[in-house]
Design a protein around this nucleic acid. Sequence first.
RNA 1: GCCGGAGUGGCGGAAUUGGCAGACGCACAGGACUUAAAAUCCUGCGGUUCGUGAGAAUCAUACCGGUUCGAUCCCGGUCUCCGGCACCA
Length: 823
Amino acid sequence: MADKYQFDGIEKKWQRHWEEAGLFKTREIPDAEKYYLLEMFPYPSGKLHMGHVRNYSIGDVAARYLRMKGKNVLHPMGWDSFGLPAENAAIQNGIHPNLWTHDNMREMRTQLKRLGLSYDWDREVATCEAEYYKWMQWIFIRFFKNGMAYKKKNPVNWCPSCETVLANEQVVDGVCDRCGSTVGKKDLEQWYLKITDYAERLLSDLDKLPGWPSKVKTMQKNWIGRSTGAEVDFTVEGTDKKLRIFTTRPDTLFGVTYMVLAPEHPFVKELAAGGGQEAQVDAFLRKLQYLSDIDRTATTLEKEGVFLGCYAVNPLSGGRVPVYIANYVLMDYGTGAIMAVPAHDQRDFDFAVKYGLDILPVIDPECPEIDLSNLKEAFVAEGKLIHSGRFDGLKNREAIGQITDFLEKEGFGKKSVNFRLRDWLISRQRYWGTPIPMIHCETCGWVPEKEENLPVLLPTDVKFTGKGESPLHTSGTFRETVCPLCGGPAVREIDTMDTFLDSSWYFLRYCDARNGARIFEKDKAKYWMPVDQYIGGVEHAILHLLYARFFTKFLYDIGESPVEEPFTRLLTQGMVLKDGKKMSKSIGNVVSPEEIIRKYGADTARLFILFASPPEKELEWSDAGVEGSYRFLNRVYRLVDEWAPALRDAPDSYASVTAADREMHYALHYAVRKVSDDIGDRFSFNTAISAIMELVNAMYKYKEAENRSTALMKNAVTNLILILSPFAPHLCEEMWQSLGHGQSLYGERWPDYDENALILDTVEIVIQINGKVKERIRVQSGLDQDAMIAKVKEDARFEQLLAGRMPVKIVAVPGKLVNVVVQ
RNA sequence: GCCGGAGUGGCGGAAUUGGCAGACGCACAGGACUUAAAAUCCUGCGGUUCGUGAGAAUCAUACCGGUUCGAUCCCGGUCUCCGGCACCA
């Protein structure tokens, strides 16, 4: 007998067997209960890391378990294969992104297969393939035709030396992180998706997702950021112009002492004209131009602004207030203009102090410690209205509604809801992404490509210089085309799509991945959707998961998606750490999955990564822990190896005769129940594995017992292999075969357990005095409270425990304990 | 600043949410096997005090308080760490 099991041969043998037998291919079977299990597909960076191993091991255990429970499980895999790294490789090493990406996909596919993951590879998708992005373009055109995609001029970060657009992350302290030049703004036409039209539904439908972690739902709620308030019109003195502002605090309207417009507000030029402040305004605007969006909106940036030279009139109080522009007001939230109430808003307060503007309290804190005539900071808590005309004396909470109603009645304003969520800027001045299938014609404007002409293929004759706009403009063949409407000369959009679009609907495509005629057959999507369980990193809690929900809702609205919410249950797995830190090349603490698999095998890698920590928590990598998991699998192997010959011809049924038999019988059924519950209900894989370890310990003990039953041992070994098989599938197949089975164990059903086996004749109960454990006694099981108390009173040690004190009260918990309360 | 989450042995974690705190594993120690080592098997393993000893007492789930017969779990406060958002009017 070999000391250690030969994992390498065993694992490769069964991986080949599964592939050749097509064991994990999935069809729609109308009568079977479906289960769609999905892990987030990877970006093909080239090598699998431990985070992938963890993510896909979690999913695979669930998939294998559910199949054995008789579910028709869809478990697909694919590639989020457009993106910047491929293009950087092209710029640096001259490798075409397409080649680089496909090499990486091949490499990683091999690694995934080496982990023994039970995917249906026939449904594999890669977002960079024309057969996939064709439908991405089709969706975009649907967005456009439904008025959900629009083009808008917007300032982007532009490096004058590199001649390229920069992402916000590439602008550090106002300079280009590649060449150090000062980054400026350039107005470019960019495509947007109107995700804000869905803000309300994206928010309220979170309540329909009880299977999501509340943490993720809260993050999405905050991101969408719904605020209710009012829009109010202020007239600009001496003109008929109305300045519309948004406020969540209409109760403070009488405390407005100035107004502020965003520097980009369309009225700025006009209002500044003739006010005598033109030069200052101009200088201020020029200064802001050189700030990146990130710096512009940083809280640390000092509030700054200039007087526009004009005044506005408060519709309620009739008061005349100066109009400013300032860096702390944003054009793309609300109306791009605010009323400033320094007494009750800290930002306005800071600004007012700096520029010597009036501070007028209109809410009385009714607190003697606060001196309203000399505020040190804005008062933002509750109170009663003062200096507010007819609304004086109202609680400010009530005043919000009453003042809003009054504004509406008088035509000065209206109720309003605002979201923090912005429309989704999807244009990327990049090559390796889905071409936006739009064409610009001088006479017809922006026109979508005809659907029968899709896909708009990415050209291959482009240069990767890292300079200029989108590399697509260097293609000699791509840009020039004809207008789909009028047939006149026209040019194609050269920007590509944000890759987050590609990953916003791949789960739908898996339902019918090879369909060349449609995005997917709706019947097939109807069979599989929604995804019953989605598993991935928490870093996607906001963007990816929000975008995927948005796409699903849109596709639902246009009659394509059968569901409104894509993912019923969500598991966000924790990070894999080494020495308390995230594994990273720069720290040099990366553990390579390849090496672990070479040294210990895939089964050990899977087992360890699931045993070391619950799935949602961070996982501290431990080489010693891996050794432990490896030892355990060897321990199982030796046990089965020793017994297999004797078990082949042993009978299946047995009677528990000895005490050891009864213990073994109990341990077996306990383990089956525990593992079933832990995998099926709780996704608590670490405790499932410890339950299997306990079973193995019990079996080692039992095999030394006198008069042990071979039939009982056969039952124990058989069930042990079955319940371990989701975690260590290769070893379990091998052991299953060694018992004389000719077929894969993945044709087997998950074992049942017998409730009766878990009922013991006697149970140990605890005697407590005042809640402290004093004694344990064995009583027959099933006793009611009175019988338990009687048993305790009979016990020889009871009087001794009381030590002469009188019981005041006795509490009994059936099957568990009796607590005697004494003075 | 605002919103979440978490603090349990030397370590990873368990206790399926009010009922025996520390399952299972790692590390460590002792024993068996071995010429020896590795591997394997068995045993022990939170702290303090008492006892030669089987054992007994007592403290212990970040800290302080509360509710309860009983709190790792519920409530109030404090501290620390982690995550998200961050001039959103």
